[in-house]
Design a protein around this nucleic acid. Sequence first.
DNA 1: CCAAAAGCAACCATTGCTGTTACATTCGAC
DNA 2: GTCGAATGTAACAGCAATGGTTGCTTTTGG
Lengths: 141, 141
Amino acid sequence: MAANSRVTIAAHALAWLELARRRGRAVLTSEEVAASVNTNPVIVRRSLGDLQRAGLVTARRGNGAGFALGRPAAEITLLDVWLAVSPEPLLALHHSEPNLECPVGRGIRPVLTDVYDEATGAFRATLARTTVNDVLERILT
Amino acid sequence: MAANSRVTIAAHALAWLELARRRGRAVLTSEEVAASVNTNPVIVRRSLGDLQRAGLVTARRGNGAGFALGRPAAEITLLDVWLAVSPEPLLALHHSEPNLECPVGRGIRPVLTDVYDEATGAFRATLARTTVNDVLERILT
DNA sequence: CCAAAAGCAACCATTGCTGTTACATTCGAC
DNA sequence: GTCGAATGTAACAGCAATGGTTGCTTTTGG
């Protein structure tokens, strides 16, 4: 499969929300966000729905409604975003259980799980060092 | 889709090749490997074909043929395996180009590319610290 | 009450992975 | 040189995930 682009879409939306907020518009509709990301408003609503469940944005319905940042952009890391939209592991174990008659088949899964967890941890730690505010600052300079 | 399991299958195959080698059988057929991994021999041939292209295993065709490790198990890291079978990035950018009229749409891609590259580098560095020999040792203890 | 916008369900098309069958190719053994 | 065993590889089916689209329901401010 192609790697998914949800983190990208979510980070884009958040950076755009923060820029709009600085310009005096704290609330944007899914259509306005979609116009910047260049996708369908439903995709944006799905993505921001994930972020809302994680508390990263707030959504208001009804007339004049839209999405706003749930907390300061400097307090939202890309790890927060990744956790909100990408719960799948980076590497998968066997689809079907390996042959337990074989020593390797019997013992390999916990070993690989450990290694994969460690690598995923390093990946996450890096994402945790960049905030949405950092992303926007780097865009604007 | 779920993350792919090719690294797992390849690592399993390599550990099994190393264990067989220690037991005096340096060459295994795809069918023998498939019996341990519990999959189809064609899957194994495809996977080991990738490893062969990277020099991690050797393949001999013809009668009495099969696969053998291309270099000592202690000199094959899981990063080597990952590079041989998983060229896809862990996170993708936008599918369709963002709106270049928007400052965020114009500038976000290189920023995210940098962050993703850094995180992927941390992921790779962790994989590079574990060898096939390490995996087998941890299985056997 | 009305209109605007989120929420949500039901699709479709595409893609990638696994698994399977079938066949061509290679190469050692005899 | 032939035979047989095994790799190499193409083609296809099934399945799941993703992005995209449409349409409808729900909410809510004015």
